[in-house]
Amino acid sequence: MTRIHNKFEELKEKGKAALVTYLTAGDPSLEATPDIIYKLEESGADIIELGVPFSDPMADGPTIQLASERALKNGTTVKGVLDIVSKIRKHSEIPIISFGYYNPFLSYGLRRFSEDARNAGVDGVLVVDLPPEEADEFKIHTDKAGLDLVFLLAPTSTSERIRLVSERASGFIYLVSVTGVTGERPAMDYSLESLVREIKNHTRLPVGIGFGVSTPDQAARIANFADAVIVGSALIRIIEKYGNNGKELFKEISGFISGLSKACYRDS
């Protein structure tokens, strides 16, 4: 069983939805990324989505686009991201999902990536622009390496696609909360609850909700009907703002994440 599976089991006992936090590797710097992740874990994050930056992040809003640009300017490569994970594994067992667009993985080599990622201590892979229809080749290698391949569902997904994704996915299912790109949003669409119920008719995998989540109030509402709350852009904004000031950065992250983490406990 993977760290991801075990984490969800552990949290079920505790009555908490998993708090999944996204950050782009190499932003503000390759050296800072492991320390930020330790701080996230210490503040209550349960799973890390570690972004592999890409030059053309088509599904991302401006916040994550700029984070990718900064990370690439800092020389972040796929190999560099895996090195970060190896380093983290000396200190932490927090589940890590490698999150990105297909081309850098493809260019690295799907088999080579799967093997190297497993050896580095990565637990799962999520490729934004790889729907199940195109994922057969990657899945052969991620399966062999024991990595979870996480797929997305969206408010536009039909029942047919919910079935298809449920069959192919492992680890958990990432439900995109809005038809749109990544980024913070003042209002969330809580009709997602019925969508989560429909997904659960097809799979026993946990379902997490992301895109636009930025406040404890939003997190608390999602935690009541989903298994994971996923936060990205709002965290990146903090990194963007305090990037070069470690002390302030850690203070802000700690405050922000512990607030969200508390909100993830159901009926709290």
Partner: peptide
């Protein structure tokens, strides 16, 4: 039927666009 020209083509997009 999946939009492939040999190994090329296909539909590499995020799930939001797949139904469209």
């Amino acid at each position: 039927e999946l939009g492939h020209y040999g190994i090329y083509g296909g539909r590499y997009v995020s799930e939001t666009l797949m139904p469209a």
